[in-house]
């Protein structure tokens, strides 16, 4: 997944040229771009969503609030370091959809690559691929099979195409046999694929 050295040098220079032009014109600050790189690579990530999932497994009031109005819940969450300088967070409209024995949820953006960036950071490469965008609505069960998901007989698949302002996160089912675990231990079980819906069992 790397570009040839010559092409890489050209793209690196073009990005730097654009950044130089915008900073020289006083339109953006290099420090803001540096901070944004740090935000999306170090401070945001699936662990923030995983913590919300683990809490929902342990606290039914929180779970119901999350399913009814995840945006409202998110506005009250203390995201600590991840909230500092997070200019996208106040604009994030989050919808949480819950997996049950009868329903499996999968999230896609067929038009571009919409994803709850301001919470989960940048999306995985496969999420942005032409193949996922084309196939997730057309043949979700075949796509899920490639990820190793085996659905129980009678389970329906619900595909959420992120076509507008809302960003989606899946609330996976709590794994059996985890009754004794703490919230932090539970959160450690939650993977990014399970938050997008390309993994069912944790």
């Amino acid at each position: 997944m790397t570009t040839p050295a010559g092409k890489r040098q050209e793209l690196t220079t073009r990005v730097a040229a654009l950044e130089n032009a915008l900073t020289a014109a006083g339109k953006v600050a290099t420090a803001d771009i540096d901070d944004t790189v740090d935000l999306y690579t170090n401070r945001l990530g699936p662990r923030l969503g995983a913590a919300m999932v683990a809490r929902a497994w342990c606290d039914d009031d929180y779970r119901r609030a999350l399913l009814a109005d995840a945006t409202g819940v998110l506005r009250e969450e203390d995201l600590g370091d991840a909230a500092r300088g997070n200019k996208g967070l106040p604009f994030l409209h989050l919808v949480v959809v819950e997996n049950t024995p009868a329903v499996h949820n999968v999230v896609v953006c067929t038009l571009c690559s919409c994803y709850p960036l301001a919470l989960l950071g940048a999306p995985p490469r496969w999420y942005k691929s032409d193949a996922y965008r084309a196939r997730a609505v057309r043949e979700p069960r075949a796509v899920l099979a490639e990820f190793g998901v085996r659905l129980e007989a009678g389970t329906s698949v619900r595909v959420w195409d992120s076509t507008a302002d809302c960003r989606y996160m899946v609330l996976p089912q709590r794994p059996p046999g985890t009754e004794g675990l703490t919230v932090d231990e539970l959160a450690a079980l939650v993977t990014v694929d399970s938050l997008i819906g390309t993994r069912r069992r944790l």
């Binding site: 997944m1 790397t2 570009t3 890489r8 793209l11 690196t12 073009r14 990005v15 730097a16 654009l18 950044e19 915008l22 953006v28 771009i33 540096d34 944004t36 790189v37 999306y40 690579t41 950071g121 940048a122 999306p123 995985p124 490469r125 496969w126 691929s129 032409d130 193949a131 996922y132 084309a134 196939r135 796509v143 490639e146 990820f147 390309t198």
Partner: peptide, 25 residues
């Protein structure tokens, strides 16, 4: 468009420095 889903096990969000830079820009 019928290709297998690429990079299922690829955890990296950016593969080259310029990608992170244009994303942040």
């Amino acid at each position: 468009i019928d290709d297998p889903i690429p990079g299922i096990d690829d955890a990296a969000r950016f593969h080259e420095g310029w990608e992170a830079r244009i994303f942040a820009l």
